[in-house]
Design a protein around this nucleic acid. Structure first.
Length: 221
DNA sequence: GCGACAG
DNA sequence: ATCTTGTCGC
């Protein structure tokens, strides 16, 4: 697929903050999703050579059957350190390289990390979704910011995630007896719809099938 | 100033 | 994220 960049990636954190605050105004948190949804994609990252090389992986699955359709991997030198709140500047460049190699344009992308559940409401799912203009959902394995009530043990249970009086996402149990996932809107997807898709993509394990497959590609060889 | 802190 | 073996539980 084709990609139109919005800015360069060699930045100071002050410049990164300026970009986040400028672009967050373009984020849409209501549903603007193609109908029907035929393909869902997962993206994930791995690192090689002591972290000096970033490796991004993309997996496109059919929906709702979740059968693997296409994969792509891209490597590039790591150019930004890991700093909480700035994950997208470290990971998105390689992810874009991988997405460029994909022939099937996904209808929704599930990202490994937060969407608007972020200090400046602009997590990696928002950043990626805005650049590729595809609906994205933030699916994080741990908390970055926000508070929530305890989530009941049963799969499908969830609680709102709030910060400074705002609803920023949900904490969702995708499998009974395992740690919940932190779900938030990336771009063009509402929270309710995000929860629905994440549940439909987790028929068996805690993590969505999309990210599980992308994870293997990014972590192994 | 003191903690918290996606991957 | 990554370094790493066995081990507990469904």
């Amino acid at each position: 697929m084709k990609i139109n960049q919005r800015h360069t990636w060699t930045l100071t954190t002050a410049e990164a903050i300026a970009i986040q605050e400028k672009l967050r105004g373009e984020i849409i948190t209501t549903d603007k999703i193609p109908t029907p949804v035929q393909y869902v994609a997962g993206v994930d990252m791995g690192f090689e050579a002591n972290g000096t090389i970033s490796r991004a992986a993309v997996a496109v699955l059919s929906f709702p059957s979740l059968q693997l359709q296409e994969t792509a991997i891209a490597r590039r030198p790591t150019s930004f350190p890991y700093i909480p709140g700035f994950l997208s500047f470290r990971e998105v460049p390689a992810v874009l390289d991988a997405l460029e190699k994909i022939n099937i344009t996904p209808d929704i992308i599930l990202c490994d990390g937060q969407g608007i559940a972020h200090p400046r409401r602009f997590g990696i799912a928002c950043h990626l979704g805005l650049i590729v203009d595809i609906p994205t959902i933030g699916v994080a394995k741990s908390l970055l910011i926000g508070k929530h009530q305890e989530v009941p043990e049963a799969r499908g249970s969830w609680q709102l995630l709030t910060d400074k009086g705002e609803t920023i996402g949900a904490v969702l149990r995708t499998r009974t007896g395992t740690k919940p996932l932190y779900i938030s809107s990336g771009h063009r997807v509402s929270l309710t719809t995000a929860i629905d898709y994440v549940l439909q993509c987790t028929p068996k394990y805690r993590l969505p099938e999309t990210t599980r497959i992308a994870d293997k590609l990014a972590s192994s060889k």
